[in-house]
């Protein structure tokens, strides 16, 4: 078990959330809650950086979908960055790799 940690950085293009730990049944609501507190403006891009993600189950996928929906409702774009291989595999199985904009590298430098 890796407790979920979320740090936020505001870049020129919009907020970036760095997610580390487990995005599971227990912690996914934390991400959803954090996302809903964000001030995302139309034309910006909300990025969730998953470089530190240890584990992601269907609850985590749901939280990522909800984040995408939240950004789109604000007129903003949404992207995932540095998706770990196992999570990318799941996204591919469920066809969401075609829905999410996925940046190969991490912005966390």
């Amino acid at each position: 078990m890796f407790p979920l940690q979320i740090t936020r950085r505001d870049s020129a293009t919009g907020p970036v959330l760095y997610v580390t730990g487990d995005l599971d049944h227990h912690y996914a609501p934390v991400l959803r809650d954090q996302v809903e507190r964000l001030d995302v403006k139309a034309g910006q891009c909300l990025v969730i950086d998953l470089a530190g993600l240890e584990f992601c189950d269907s609850s985590g996928i749901t939280a990522l979908l909800a984040a995408r929906q939240f950004a789109q409702a604000a007129g903003a774009d949404f992207a995932l960055a540095a998706v770990p291989d196992n999570t990318l595999r799941i996204l591919t199985i469920v066809g969401l790799h075609r829905i999410f904009t996925i940046h190969p590298g991490s912005n966390a430098v």
């Binding site: 469920v94 066809g95 969401l96 075609r98 829905i99």
Partner: peptide
């Protein structure tokens, strides 16, 4: 059956 999408997650979905 690659690319078939989660059912119910998005308003429109593509199935393989």
């Amino acid at each position: 059956t690659p690319g078939g999408m989660l059912v119910g997650a998005l308003p429109t979905a593509v199935f393989t």
